Simulated scan of single mutants.
Amino acid sequence: MAKKATKTLAASNAARLNNTLYISLSVHTLFLLLRALFYHSTFTRSSLILYALLSTPSLLITLYFNKLSRPTYTATGTIKNAGEDLDAKGLTEYMWDVVYWSWGCVVLAALVGDRAWWLWIAVPGYSGWKAWTVYTGMRGGGGGGGYQDAAGMPQPEVASKRQAKMEKRGGQKVAYR
């Protein structure tokens, strides 16, 4: 079983990308059909612009995943490249969240109308909140473990009782960085 991990990753990537394609096609088809059939009076140019603008990130991310993670094969049928792991943590995970959230917004907009597009604010709002907390965390103390008093002055970290006893006895000293 040579290259079993590569074969497993290629099969998993191909299956997930195919499922993503089918779900994306069905979500967008559902939106266009429901809006044309039931909401034809509100199916205006602004509605189409909102749809195009707010569904574009998920479509671009899906294309990016296809380019990055679609397995490639040689002429003989062996795996040339399995692609990147679609279950990776970090940015890949965040991009999947954007895809899923936009699918939900498209379905809700198809069912209840254009007001559902306001739910899309949650994505940049969450990103801004995370960026702000990271920025304030880095600015606040540099991650040194200290805390700030009421006046905003940094205070040194207090040693635990065990560390204080050890230092009092002259034993093992703790070096602070």
Rank of each mutant, 00 (worst) to 15 (best):
S46I: 14
L54T: 01
L91D: 06
R169I: 05
W103G: 00
G113Y: 00
S160F: 06
I49P: 04
G146P: 04
G77I: 01
G113V: 00
K89T: 09
Y64C: 09
G141W: 01
S55L: 03
W132Q: 06
L63W: 10
A150D: 11
A159D: 13
G170P: 05
Y73D: 10
W132M: 10
T72K: 07
Q155S: 08
W101K: 03
K89P: 00
M138T: 09
K161R: 08
A52F: 09
P156D: 12
N66Q: 14
G140D: 13
R139I: 07
S69L: 03
G113R: 00
L119F: 05
G146H: 04
R162P: 02
Y135W: 14
D97K: 10
K168Y: 11
S47Q: 13
E93L: 11
A109N: 01
T62S: 15
W103I: 01
W120R: 01
H40N: 13
V112D: 06
K168H: 09
L60R: 09
R45N: 14
A75G: 06
T76L: 11
L60C: 13
D97P: 03
Q148R: 15
P57E: 05
F43Q: 02
K89E: 13
N66R: 14
G171L: 10
R169V: 10
T72A: 06
L54Q: 02
W129I: 12
A88L: 10
L86C: 02
G143D: 12
L50K: 12
T78A: 12
E157W: 10
R70V: 04
Y147Q: 10
T42C: 10
I121A: 15
G144N: 15
L60G: 14
Q155Y: 06
A116D: 02
P71M: 06
N66F: 12
S41G: 12
A131Y: 05
T78Y: 04
L68G: 01
C105R: 00
I121Q: 07
A88W: 05
K67A: 06
Q148Y: 11
T62N: 11
W101Y: 15
D97T: 09
L91H: 08
K165E: 14
Q163E: 12
Y94E: 10
G152V: 08
Y126W: 11
A150P: 02
K161Y: 08
W117C: 03
R45F: 15
M153S: 12
T136K: 10
I49W: 13
N66I: 07
W96G: 00
L59K: 01
V112L: 10
T76G: 13
Q155C: 14
A150M: 07
M166P: 02
S46R: 15
D87W: 05
K130N: 12
F43V: 05
T133M: 14
Y73F: 14
P71D: 05
Q172M: 08
Y147G: 11
R45I: 15
A82I: 01
L68I: 04
K168L: 10
Y64P: 01
S47R: 04
K80T: 06
A88G: 03
